[in-house]
């Protein structure tokens, strides 16, 4: 048995033990997301248009992450709407900025790893960089949106009389806590993934200017910054959407 399959089985068992039925559903959503991601790579490598495939995959991943395992209709709908809006807004930010900063493809530091390959493979690396960026932000925005939406729904349920500004304030408090932790998860995730790179850069006696300009470092930092921006945006939008929803629910009563 390979290490990866043993670890997958251990994770599945532990998720069921610690989460029961919801744990099992979470594991299924993980498997579905992985399959979708893998399919996306294969479809794009097969030559299908990158942007439509990415957008479709992103919407599916968001739907799976948000709707599977969360049952409350109001919360999930608000969270889904907020994440979709952020997805579109992020496209508007990423497309021009990635083009200007030219961070797509491989960097000189990676040339050893790819020296066996001929890089003229006829795909648009700029569009692929866009896919990478969008996909890496999806998990974080889905998590933040769901957390803020369910936290606020709980407050609306408990105290029906709170005004907009009160509600906005509590939403912001929940968002702030989630944001602080999400920033750290992103940060640790990035350094966990790039530890070897940092050691290499230091061994090469990289100057401060190198950090601000090299493709590899700027590219990796852009990923974290985009995710941070997406998380802030999604918290803001979820709060506002939830307030609108609360108004509608009051009117219907």
């Amino acid at each position: 048995m390979t290490t990866i399959s043993l670890l997958t089985i251990i994770l599945a068992v532990l998720m069921v033990i610690s989460g029961g039925r919801r744990g099992a559903i979470s594991f299924v959503s993980l498997l579905l997301n992985f399959t979708l991601l893998f399919l996306t790579v294969i479809l794009i490598a097969g030559g299908l248009p990158v942007l439509p495939v990415t957008f479709l995959a992103a919407v599916c991943i968001l739907a799976i992450t948000i709707y599977l395992g969360n049952t409350d209709e109001v919360e999930t709908n608000v969270a889904f709407l907020a994440t979709l809006t952020v997805l579109v807004l992020m496209l508007l930010l990423i497309v021009p900025l990635d083009h200007l900063a030219q961070i797509h493809g491989f960097s000189n530091e990676e040339s050893e790893e790819i020296e066996a390959f001929n890089l003229a493979i006829g795909v648009n690396f700029e569009e692929i960089a866009l896919t990478t960026t969008l996909l890496s932000t999806l998990g974080a925005i889905a998590e933040a949106a769901i957390a803020v939406a369910s936290g606020m729904a709980e407050i609306i349920r408990q105290t029906a009389t709170e005004g907009d500004s009160e509600l906005r304030k509590s939403g912001r408090n929940i968002g702030l806590q989630i944001m602080g932790m999400t920033f750290n998860t992103l940060f640790f995730g990035m350094f966990g993934g790039n530890l070897a790179l940092f050691i290499l850069l230091y061994k090469l006696h990289a100057s401060f200017g190198y950090y601000l300009n090299s493709k590899i470092f700027v590219g990796e930092t852009f990923l974290v910054l985009y995710s941070a921006i997406a998380v802030i945006l999604v918290i803001w939008l979820t709060i506002e959407f939830m307030i609108i929803k609360a108004h509608k629910m009051k009117q219907s009563k």
Partner: peptide
């Protein structure tokens, strides 16, 4: 309630890194 989304966050970050 946080288990599922959190594991997905990581999966997406790690997968995106290997995409290109």
């Amino acid at each position: 309630s946080i288990m599922g989304p959190l594991v997905n966050v990581l999966l997406l970050i790690f997968f995106a890194e290997t995409f290109t």
